[in-house]
Write a protein that binds this DNA or RNA. Structure first.
Lengths: 215, 215
DNA sequence: CGACCGGTTGGTCGGGCGACCAACGGGCCG
DNA sequence: CGGCCCGTTGGTCGCCCGACCAACCGGTCG
């Protein structure tokens, strides 16, 4: 694409090595020496690119989220139906999440940061979630979702469920990312209760007022 | 309850302080000196109770899971209907998760451990998940769920969604734990697609075979 | 050809980490 | 009353962390 001499791939080596180690051990448990060694270099070279370890994590996060959004956008680029866009976006998101170390680092390691670095990470995450908020709102705007849904809550459920797959998924299991995403979508789109055993329609949207609020 | 001289609450002070700090900063980013200070003691005292920092985390995890399971079991103790048991269990689990620092520590900090300590944590988590597996199987056994569900996948979705609430929930928000749990349950039990726009019944349980497996 | 400069090398530095321990205090029991 | 022992104290130890830097290498360009 752009001009690439010999140094551009080296940059990625540091990011890739850091992403893999951060995912395996966590940010704090990983040393700069480990990262440099895994990248086939020395700590000094790493310091030349990134003044602090936190700066490396932040750059990793920014690039990871940008690549994630790009992958999802490309997966739904030529689809018009808002509900189908949401379904395909979740599918693409899960595939990306399970294929890149950086995507999983983003989920957990911001907790180890303090001060400005932490604020920066939260800002990046909010920007990322805004994109998904848009997808959910558009899906609801199509009128094909139940009209009484709390869309913010739905977004939390969708992203939370997809992200949690990273905690148990193994590439050696029977299901690929697409199968998991489809299964989750089936559950959420149609519900897990059998049609014959659903509550009367009146209940949906007015969930047992007597129980809400106590506890 | 049992005999309590003066030292029993001191024990809890270390665990409580550690749980709060681990949740806020992560396990690796927290020092034993911080924990001791927050507990109103000195590092030596902490070392007397726990030989290593990892041992403290493991004990925290074991006690946290036991207390969690006890809270959930007590919440469904006198309920017979399996589907209702599952619903109430998720509700109780979320309330517990959001009220205890230890419960959130369990979710993330095992990644920082290595070797035997890590295996021990995974063993504890598997034991915990087995309980939930039982609840899901019993709910399915009632015949009130759709018959074609992948129960393992459903368990992952349920626990993953509930656990993810800890990442965004604020006690100062509009919703309490019970409201969030009920909202999630509504989504999952009845589905988010409007009845009028559902696919024909034939689709459910045979999710578009043409798309499964590629990508 | 020689000056330049982006990038690497190998080593160093102060700090603060987890782990440890000898000495001690004071409540309990014989 | 005296001895014992559980638990705390305050400090230390060696290690290794993140950060840093002077010297250097080699490709590029004037």
């Amino acid at each position: 694409m752009t001009k690439k001499k010999t140094s551009a791939p080296v940059d990625d080596r540091f990011l890739d090595a850091a992403a893999r180690l951060f995912r395996q051990q966590g940010f704090e448990a990983t040393t700069v020496r480990e990262i440099a060694k895994a990248a086939g270099s020395l700590p000094g070279s790493l310091h030349y690119r990134y003044p602090t370890k936190a700066a490396l994590l932040i750059d990793l996060t920014r690039r990871g989220m940008d690549a994630d959004l790009a992958a999802v956008r490309s997966a739904i680029g030529n689809v018009a139906d808002p509900v189908e866009r949401l379904r395909l976006a979740l599918r693409a998101r899960l595939s990306y999440l399970l294929s890149r170390d950086a995507a999983q680092v983003i989920l957990y390691d911001w907790r180890a940061l303090k001060g400005k670095a932490r604020e920066e990470m939260i800002r990046l995450r909010d920007r990322y979630e805004a994109f998904w908020s848009g997808l959910v709102y558009e899906a609801a705007g199509s009128g094909r979702l139940r009209p009484d849904l709390d869309l913010k809550m739905l977004r939390f459920l969708l992203l939370g469920a997809i992200n949690s797959v990273a905690q148990w998924y193994s590439p050696r299991g029977q299901c690929g990312p697409a199968e998991v995403a489809d299964a989750f979508w089936e559950f959420l789109a149609f519900g897990v209760l059998d049609d014959a055993h659903r509550m009367p329609a009146a209940r949906r949207g007015a969930p047992e007022p007597a129980l809400v609020g106590e506890e």
